[in-house]
Write a protein that binds this DNA or RNA. Structure first.
Lengths: 134, 134
DNA sequence: ATAAAATTAGGAATGATTCCGATTTACTTT
DNA sequence: AAAGTAAATCGGAATCATTCCTAATTTTAT
């Protein structure tokens, strides 16, 4: 995913182009790791001192719905990162300190034999510390 | 895990035996699925009308530390269930409606080749709906 | 029975997230 | 380019799960 792809997706789905949206996307494009709403606020604050959490969460929610960002929950807090795939389905190793990720290509669902559950989703994440944060 | 095992573990670790703790454990023993703090409160309320969330969370936290219950986060809310293993490491298929689980014996970590991350933990959960809740 | 330690009630505090009414902005049509 | 309208934003209040705090009570061990 990159900024102009993301802007196209927004346009296709009837969302307007705003300078704030572009700056959100640039942040995610530069920082290819999991960020919190607060991280986003701090990055934007110099340019938009009055930016509200409402705007951040509303946009992150739109981005997530459209597949522009991926969302996960770490330690009770939502984290978001630029969707890192045209490569399709994948999982992540995540640094609990800085949010950096490494992709894991293998998906454990391939070994699952169906039972009476109707499966809608799954999560496979590996947590730890990246080289810099150890 | 069963109630008397759990009580033994508590005693071994210097925690006192209280009637509330026993009732917590009985609930988890009867309902072998993921419950929220609110679920616990509602179950206990008839017997202990003044029971506070503080007591619930404090005990659930002790139980989790001692391995008596397992914890996970579903839709931004903590859920707890009686630890279902003397069988050691395992994962779960979880019903998003009622919290019922099916155990998954296979662990995807066996296929992970180490990289520069220092791995501390991992999560593999499959979400869906059990037969009754479909 | 007593003392020390642990637990509890009850409510207040926290912190992330969401909601809401009023205002501003981006896009469309004239 | 100006007007109209629908969406986006602001600012702050509300919500919700969870945690913290203190005085009072209960339990265990002596």
């Amino acid at each position: 995913m990159n900024v102009s792809e993301a802007l196209d997706i927004l346009k296709e789905n009837g969302y307007k182009h705003t300078t704030k949206r572009e700056m959100f996307l640039e942040l995610f494009s530069n920082e290819r790791r999991y960020l919190t709403a607060k991280d986003v606020l701090e990055y934007m604050k110099p340019s938009y001192p009055g930016l509200s959490f409402d705007t951040i969460y509303r946009n992150l929610s739109v981005f997530t719905e459209l597949g522009i960002v991926e969302e996960t929950e770490l330690d009770g807090e939502k984290h978001f990162r630029f969707s890192c795939s045209t490569k399709g389905h994948h999982h992540h190793m995540i640094c609990l300190q800085c949010g950096k990720t490494n992709a894991i290509e293998a998906c454990p669902m391939k070994d699952i034999t169906p039972d009476e559950f109707m499966i809608t989703d799954h999560k496979f994440e590996i947590y730890g510390y990246c080289q810099e944060c150890q």
